[in-house]
Every structure is written in C-alpha cells, then in structure tokens.
Amino acid sequence: MQTLNFEFPADRPPARRAHVGVAGSGDLEVLMTPGPAGVARVRVRTSVDGFDTVWRVVLERFFARHRVAAGFELNDSGATPGVVTLRLRQAVEESMEEGSA
C-alpha cells in the first residue's frame, strides 16, 4: 500500500461534498469535501505500489478539465485509469447537483 499526495490549481468551488465508489477490487472510493480556495488537494491511498507517475498523469489530465477546488480522498483497490476518471467525474457531478443530502 502506498500513500500519494498531489495538488492542482483549481477555481471552481463545489456546491457540497460527495461520496462515490467502494475500495473493492478494481474500484476505488472517492470522498470529496469543499476545501481551500484555489486548489484541488488529492490524497491517494492505493493497494498497488509504484504507479506514482501514472497517478500524476491521470489526475493532472482530470483537474485540467475539472478545476474543482476541493479536498479529494481516494481509497483505491487497483482501479484502472478509466475507472479512476469515471469515479472522479461522478463525484464532481454529484457535488454540483443542488438539493439532496
């Protein structure tokens, strides 16, 4: 298991926090909390060691398109880059919806 920390520039504050996914085989859990202005702060805990560069590339690409200023906690159990991007997008979509809890 490995813990990685990243920061990316961001300028869109989310409406609310969001939670998607599960830290189960091939998937990951994402907790997203409205956070400090101007930055997306990401902490990744992953079951698979040695993929620092892949994580950086995947997250950089995502946060270049979705400049969401929030804290992101990712609990990963070997998700592919495609699944990581999907879960992040779901979290952002959920956080932008008005209304429900």
Partner: peptide, 25 residues
Amino acid sequence: GGELCGPFERIESPWLEPQDVVPQS
C-alpha cells in the same frame, strides 16, 4: 433515511493500514 456514522465521519478500521490494506471510510 438518514445515515449514521457515514463515510465523512471517517471511522475507519485501525487495523488495515498497518497490514498494507486500503481502508474504506
């Protein structure tokens, strides 16, 4: 429905990380 001790409470298992297992919130 209202959830109790939900994911944002972050009451994780304290025993998994020391064994290199990723916890769930």
